[in-house]
Design a protein around this nucleic acid. Structure first.
Lengths: 199, 199
DNA sequence: TACACATGACTGACTAGTCAGTTATAAGGA
DNA sequence: TCCTTATAACTGACTAGTCAGTCATGTGTA
C-alpha cells in the first residue's frame, strides 16, 4: 500500500473536466495550460503528472467524445419492438440527450477543424460514423423486410437520417434563435418518415 | 500619372489566395504569417501593407466565404418554372458546385470552431443562413399553394432541406470513402421529396 | 525516514508585428 | 537615348511578448 491513496483517476477526471470548460471557451490553441490548471484548482506542474502534454489531454477528450452516447444507443439493438417504433425511440433518445451534448458541441467543432490534418481525429469520427450506421442500417432494413417501410436502399436511408440529425444541429449552431432543435428535429424526421412509409 | 501602377487589389487577391491555401493546410492558429508570405511570393512586411493584422486576413476570408455561392442562387428567385422543378435545379446547382466548395471546406469548419466565441463569425453564418431561407421558404410555400406539395409549414420544410444538405456534407467530411456526396445528396432529397409530395 | 503528491518560478523556442533601409518603375529634361 | 528624380512597392532583421514544458523545492502521511 502506498503512503497515500491513489488519486490518479480522480485527478485525470478533474483535469478533463476543466479542460472541457476551457477548450470550449477559448479553443484548443488559445487555451493555456495555466488556464486549465486554474480551472481544475491545480498547479500547472500537476497537469504534467497526469498527462504528458497538452496534446495528450486533447486526445483524451477526443476518445471520450462519443463514448457515452454510443454505449447508450447500442441498447436499441436488443429491443424487440417494431422498426418504426425503434426509430422513434432513437429520435427521442437523441433529442433528450441534446442538452447533455450542448456542453461538448464547441469541442466537437473544434475537432472538425483538425479533421483535415490529423489522422487521429479522422479515425475517431470515422469510428463514430460507422458504429452509428451499424446500429441504424439493420434497423431500417428490418423495417423494409417487414413491410413497415417502402422497399429501398437501407444504407442510403440511414445516411439520410444521420445527415438530417447532424445538419439540424449544425444549423442550430449557426443561429440558435432561428432553429428550435427539438421542434425541427421532430419536423424533419416526420417529413422523412412520410417519405419512408408505404403509400 | 504615378511612377508605379496601383497593384493594391491584385496583391490583396494574391495574399487571400495564399492565405486560403495555408489556412486549409495548417489551421488559423498554426499558420504563420511567414508561411503565407512565402506562399504568396512576398515578404512578411508586404502582407502588412495590405492587411493590418493576421485577424484582418481571416476576417476578409470570412466575408468572401459565402458571397459567390449566394449571388448565384439568388437567380432562382426570378425563375418562372414550377416550384418542384426549381427545387431540383437548386439541388443540382449545389451538387455541381460542390467541387468548387471543397477547397474552402476546411476553412469553413475552421470558422465553425470560432463560431462560439467570435460574434463576427456568428454574424456571417447567420446572414448566410437567413439568405438561404429567404430563397427557399417562398419556393416551398409556392409549391404548397399551387398544390404541388402537401400543405404544411414551409419554413420548417426549408430548414429540413438545409439540414439535409449541410449534414450530408458533414458526414462526407467524417468519412469521404463511405459517403458519395452526389449520390447521397440525391438519395436524401428524393426521400424528402417523396414525403413532401401529395399522396 | 521514505514516498507520493504537489507547486510555481523558470527557460527557451516560437512568432506577430515593426520599421529603417532597398529596389523598381515611370516621368521629364537634356 | 540617357540621366535624374520622385515615390510606390517591397524587404527581412529585429523586438517584445507568449506559453508549453521542466525541475528544484516543498508538504503531508504511513
Amino acid at each position: 500500500m502506498s503512503p497515500k491513496p491513489n488519486v490518479s483517476e480522480e485527478r485525470k477526471e478533474q483535469i478533463t473536466e476543466a479542460a472541457t470548460t476551457i477548450f470550449s471557451q477559448k479553443g484548443f490553441d488559445k487555451a493555456r495550460m495555466d488556464d486549465i490548471a486554474k480551472e481544475a484548482n491545480l498547479s500547472k506542474g500537476t497537469l504534467y503528472l497526469y498527462f504528458k502534454s497538452k496534446d495528450a489531454i486533447i486526445e483524451h477528450l477526443l476518445n471520450r467524445l462519443f463514448e457515452r452516447e454510443m454505449a447508450d444507443l447500442q441498447l436499441l439493438k436488443e429491443d424487440p419492438r417494431p422498426a418504426s417504433e425503434k426509430l422513434t425511440i432513437f429520435t427521442e433518445k437523441i433529442i433528450s440527450d441534446i442538452h447533455g451534448w450542448a456542453r461538448v458541441i464547441p469541442i466537437m467543432y473544434e475537432f472538425l477543424g483538425r479533421l483535415f490534418r490529423q489522422s487521429v481525429v479522422q479515425k475517431a469520427f470515422k469510428k463514430y460514423l460507422h458504429s452509428y450506421f451499424d446500429l441504424i442500417t439493420p434497423l431500417i432494413q428490418e423495417g423494409m423486410d417487414t413491410g413497415e417501410f417502402k422497399a429501398g436502399n437501407a444504407g442510403e436511408t440511414a445516411i439520410t437520417i444521420g445527415a438530417l440529425f447532424e445538419g439540424t444541429i449544425l444549423l442550430w449552431v449557426y443561429d440558435p434563435e432561428m432553429i428550435d432543435l427539438e421542434k425541427h428535429l421532430h419536423a424533419g424526421m416526420k417529413l422523412l418518415m412520410d417519405g419512408l412509409k408505404k403509400d
